[in-house]
Design a protein around this nucleic acid. Structure first.
Lengths: 230, 230
DNA sequence: TTATTATTGTCGCATTTTGAGACAATAATA
DNA sequence: TATTATTGTCTCAAAATGCGACAATAATAA
């Protein structure tokens, strides 16, 4: 990780959303011996597309390829330049050496959000952090720098996009029921939706394909499974 | 303009929209002796907020303060790194010296669009360019690098935001008629809108204040003037 | 075998929103 | 005083939405 590999002043942060079946969750990292919580982020290699750098980081953190990813804002205030915080993180990891000094300079951060299937992810911390865990969206720890603001803007953008694209399916397995999809919408929007109306609207888009029924051994009618694309 | 003033690798580009009364227009710059057309852009000072850097550039180019400004995407592909083009621009301006070498490095560009009142702007070129003029949105010259893609994404984002916010008024003077506002919408969306329906919807938002009538000396009923905010 | 339970797919109806034409009002001109 | 072009507003049909209802059904209990 030397300064000739990466572009100076440019970082990215990612808000990684997952859905547990009930609540919307976000992947948060904790740095060694500092008590600092942060969004997963990283730097851009000199010969690498910005989007590819983010995908590379997500792959390392989640093990997943082909993630649904959307860039939503670039944060560039001077106020987010706090070298003493990065210094603290580096020192807590035993990095006092010259090759890391470039990380103490000012950065702007391009922010992305990702939607992934909660169940096929094993969160993996990076070299500087000792954990990488799911947190309920409404029970996040105190995040460093402007990361709380980044999360807020991610949620806002996700809500706006939810009404335009059929995006919620990325938080579910390939086959899902309409009730599961509705619960995703409810978790994102933070409100209950009428079952009949939701069903009519989603099916009316003509974007879902119906498959065989899902028998869960429950004492009631079994729902159909659906997948994206017809 | 030396390399210690600005952050390396970071630029911005702005898509500045104006409305002539009929068509949507964009401000385009032409570089001296090169035949190259480009969006107005610039660099970020080391002690400056990203948004402030863009406002500074807009002020220099249009003379306006308090412009409606929206960040919409950050372009970071390797393919947009073409040092020979910047080299050509610098040489055409007689800048062969070391202090400009940092401009030949790779840049990512944060893109903004601005909505301004066409009538109170005198476009002003910068040091490297010899003109700065309005072009009809559907008659743009060939733009350098990925600037055509930037314009396309700006238009797409503007259309999406048009339905959410009452944003078209920024392209008009403080007082305007509903017909003028409708023509702005039609120019942005690229389609005719029904007069009665448009009027009902806009007034139904309750965001416009009605003022005295506008008498233009035309042989027909005079329209009311409106302003934003009640 | 038959009733019970919980949930699903879908329908119907009232309400709201939207699309499109119509018509009187009116500012200037003929 | 009639004509012209455009405005503000209305009405009616069509489409979309909100919300409850009801039969269907998969498993369990009686």
């Amino acid at each position: 990780m030397d300064e000739t590999t990466f572009l100076r002043h440019i970082a990215y942060d990612s808000v990684i959303f997952g859905f547990s079946g009930e609540k919307l969750k976000i992947l948060i990292m904790k740095y060694h011996n500092t008590g600092l919580y942060a969004l997963p982020g990283g730097f851009m290699q000199r010969d690498e597309n910005l989007n590819d750098a983010v995908r590379r980081g997500l792959r390392e953190r989640t093990g997943l390829e082909n993630i649904y990813l959307e860039q939503f804002y670039t944060f560039g205030d001077v106020a987010r330049y706090k070298p003493e915080i990065m210094q603290m993180i580096l020192e807590a990891n035993g990095h006092y050496s010259e090759p890391h000094q470039w990380m103490l300079d000012r950065f702007i951060s391009v922010a992305y959000y990702a939607l992934i299937n909660y169940n096929d992810v094993v969160p993996t911390p990076d070299a500087l952090s000792d954990s990488c865990d799911w947190y309920d969206m409404d029970e996040l720890p105190n995040l460093m720098l402007d990361h709380a603001e980044i999360v807020a803007k991610a949620v806002q953008t996700l809500r706006e996009n939810l009404e335009r694209k059929l995006v919620g399916t990325n938080l579910l397995p390939p086959l899902f029921t309409l009730t599961e999809l509705r619960k995703v919408y409810e978790a994102i929007l933070g409100e209950k939706l009428h079952r009949g109306t939701f069903q009519r609207k989603i099916l009316g888009l003509g974007l879902l394909q119906r498959h065989e029924k899902q028998f869960l051994g429950k004492a009631h009618k079994a729902p159909f499974l659906y997948s994206l694309g017809d």
